[in-house]
Amino acid sequence: MSNRFRSDRRLTVRMTVTLFLFGLLYVLFVAALIALLKSWVLVLVVAAGFLAVQYWYADRIALYAMRGRIVEREEYPRLHGVVDRLCAVADMPKPRVAVADMEMPNAFATGRNADHAVVCVTTGLLRRLEPDELEGVLAHELSHVAHRDVAVLTIASFLGVLAGLVVRFAFYSHMFGGGRRDQNTAVVFSVVMGISAAVYVLSFLLIRVLSRYRELAADRAGALLTGRPSALASALTKVTGDIARIPTRDLRTSQAFNAFYFTPALGRHPHLGRFFATHPTLEQRIDQLGRIAVELGQPAAPGSGAGKAG
């Protein structure tokens, strides 16, 4: 798709390497299945079915899960106006616009391509952000749409889905048919479960790495599109601080969808499990936006490391 979102070559290289590792892991995994199982085709078909449903209906599933609804211009004219302007500047089709009635300030984009995309913001976000901050957040989300990030992550997650299904398939087959199997068969199923579990863990970690790269790329592309990285930095700081004050019960509900969000719902222990995080840290994102501001000849965002003596 042709659009005016600028790309980051360094991040593109990193994402390419990560996807290559996904492909290599997939080939090794399938080779192991072929060598060890005679009925692996059934698992592959089931996993492909899950992939197809997730890929074709990602927008509907995400909206339903996060209580979002499509809104028309008459209901939210300011929101539609910002999306219209950004899409015109980016030279891309306008996605559907949705609002989720949630106190937690956040936003997300979903859909397999620009023609089936949805950009959704929460009512908590609309109440908290200034116009230029909202524009920065929406530019970030539109970058996800323009670069088909949902489709990329859906395809990447296929390996993890497949590995998880193989673990379950091997476990239940062994458990319910254990009395009718010889020792060699039991060893084969144990090996399959071990390989599948290892592949699932590696896939889980690679998806997190890929997701963090995509978030940094979306921050950069959105900041360059608007020409105001400081506004996006301000929105990030404000939203992250306000999320920390959201009741723990509401955060737990939202954490399952962290990979979709503009910034994750981290709860009261944001430093735990950074290696497993779907997003870069706030400091990394602010520092990158500070460097972009310097590139554009603007003052670095407050709190960023850009402009400091090395």
Rank of each mutant, 00 (worst) to 15 (best):
M1S: 11
R9L: 12
R10T: 14
L11S: 05
T12K: 10
R14K: 13
R14G: 15
L25E: 09
V27K: 06
L28F: 11
L28T: 10
F29A: 09
I34S: 13
A35V: 13
A35Y: 11
A35D: 12
L37E: 12
L42E: 14
V46T: 11
A47G: 11
A47Y: 07
A48Q: 15
A52H: 13
V53C: 13
W56V: 15
Y57D: 13
A58P: 10
L63N: 06
L63V: 11
R67F: 12
G68A: 13
G68Q: 07
G68E: 09
E75H: 02
Y76T: 06
Y76R: 06
P77S: 08
P77L: 09
K94A: 10
V97Y: 01
V97I: 14
A98R: 05
D101Y: 10
E103P: 03
A109L: 11
T110K: 08
T110D: 09
R112T: 06
N113S: 10
A114Y: 02
D115H: 12
D115G: 12
H116S: 09
H116R: 14
V118E: 05
C120H: 02
R127K: 15
R128C: 11
R128P: 06
R128S: 13
E135N: 04
G136F: 05
L138F: 04
A139V: 01
H140Y: 09
L142S: 02
S143G: 11
S143I: 00
H144E: 03
V145M: 08
H147E: 07
D149P: 00
A156P: 06
L159H: 01
V166D: 00
V166Y: 00
R168E: 08
F169D: 10
A170T: 03
S173P: 02
G177S: 08
G178K: 08
G179M: 11
D182I: 07
N184D: 14
V187D: 11
F189I: 10
F189M: 15
M193T: 04
I195Y: 06
I195P: 00
A198D: 04
V199R: 01
V199Q: 02
Y200W: 12
V201D: 06
F204M: 07
F204Q: 08
L206V: 08
S211M: 06
R212C: 03
R214E: 01
R214N: 03
A218W: 00
D219G: 06
A221H: 00
L225G: 04
G227T: 08
R228Y: 03
R228K: 15
P229D: 04
P229I: 02
S234L: 05
L236W: 01
T237A: 15
T237Y: 03
K238V: 09
T240P: 01
T240H: 08
D242C: 09
I243Q: 10
A244D: 12
R249W: 10
R252V: 15
R252I: 12
N258S: 13
N258P: 03
A259C: 14
A259Y: 07
A265H: 09
L266D: 00
L266H: 01
R268V: 15
P270H: 07
L272E: 14
G273R: 03
R274A: 09
F275D: 08
F276C: 15
A277L: 07
P280Q: 04
Q284G: 05
I286G: 03
L289M: 05
G297R: 02
Q298V: 07
P299L: 04
P299K: 02
A300L: 07
G303Q: 07
S304H: 00
G307Y: 04
K308Q: 15
A309M: 14
